[in-house]
């Protein structure tokens, strides 16, 4: 921000000096979010004691979260610090929904908290009171206040990739670890999702994630690996399924799918042949049909068309 006002490239500067020591045009400068300034006005109005009476000891006051994802009610919610995830997601948010938007009672899988550089939390954290200190302890952060709820149909590796792609694109390109590191993290996640990964990939993801986290110049780089590291921490099993079993439990990672027609079930009705957009399915009437793996684009149209669920693996 300071660099942009000065007409320079938007790139972080090494600190110290901090902006409060030497900021805009070399003068002491305070940079704050709008939310902080909004709090200031309220603190001045009601007094610090009243403000501090809400929230937790180390995180006083309220926090606005942007609740979105697989929940019935999305939008901005302001809650006192210390409110549990369960309260926000299941109560205020009205519960987890499926992809069609219907309430899915047992559907909770995870929340991504703190924006793209935040961390993914699981069911075990549902009763965690949300505050700066408690979130940091579990590898997440308050961050921008983003709160994305995810249902059981969500692939956590793909989610990590989604956020990684965002931060990778946001990197200004100044420091080596963030510029090259986020790019390589993304490539490693692609390997996992597209079935090229092996045991070394997991180790490298962790080592690189740690290096980028510790060594980057600014906050963007330091938090960029959070989605990867937190999903590795809480959803390691899903990574292992992708890598060692070449399987995505949600079926979202197309490269890992290997659709086939169950010859016992198939009645040779031809519905799948009609549905296939690439002509990958062949077979005579009333005889089991066959999918040509070379031509198949794993779109799932055949599985949807088949009334007797003879198409499997997709």
């Amino acid at each position: 921000m300071i660099a942009s006002i000065e007409g320079q490239r938007g790139m972080p500067r090494p600190k110290p000096p901090f902006p409060a020591q030497s900021g805009l045009w070399g003068k002491p400068t305070i940079i704050n979010n709008v939310e902080t300034l909004a709090h200031v006005s309220r603190i001045l109005k009601v007094g610090a004691e009243v403000f501090k009476s809400i929230g937790t000891k180390d995180s006083p006051g309220t926090k606005t979260f942007a609740l979105t994802g697989h929940v019935a009610n999305t939008g901005l919610v302001e809650v006192p610090f210390g409110t549990t995830l369960r309260e926000i997601v299941l109560n205020i948010g009205g519960g987890i929904t499926d992809d069609a938007g219907k309430i899915w009672k047992t559907g909770f899988k995870a929340v991504q908290i703190g924006g793209p550089s935040g961390g993914c939390l699981t069911e075990e954290h549902l009763d965690l009171p949300l505050a700066y200190e408690s979130l940091r302890a579990v590898g997440a952060m308050v961050g921008s206040g983003g709160l994305v709820a995810m249902n059981q149909g969500t692939c956590m590796v793909s989610i990590a990739r989604f956020f990684m792609e965002f931060t990778q694109r946001e990197s200004c390109g100044k420091c080596v670890l963030c510029r090259e590191g986020t790019n390589q993290l993304l490539a490693l996640l692609d390997d996992v999702i597209e079935g090229r990964a092996d045991a070394g990939t997991l180790e490298l993801l962790e080592k690189l994630g740690h290096a980028v986290q510790v060594g980057s110049l600014c906050g963007l780089g330091k938090t960029a690996p959070n989605p990867v590291l937190s999903t590795l921490r809480y959803f390691r099993k899903e990574y292992e399924e992708h890598i060692f079993e070449k399987r995505c439990r949600t079926g979202r990672c197309k490269a890992l799918l290997s659709p086939g027609i169950n010859e016992v079930k198939c009645k040779g009705c031809g519905l799948c042949i009609k549905a296939c957009p690439t002509g990958a399915i062949t077979g005579e009437k009333k005889k089991p049909h066959h999918i040509d793996a070379e031509l198949c684009i794993k779109c799932g149209a055949c599985a949807t068309a088949c009334k007797i669920h003879a198409v499997e693996g997709i």
């Binding site: 490239r9 790139m11 990778q168 694109r169 946001e170 990197s171 200004c172 390109g173 100044k174 510029r179 090259e180 790019n183």
Partner: peptide, 9 residues
């Protein structure tokens, strides 16, 4: 000087 951003710098 530097041009572009991120990995394209």
């Amino acid at each position: 000087d530097f041009s572009h951003r991120g990995h394209e710098v």
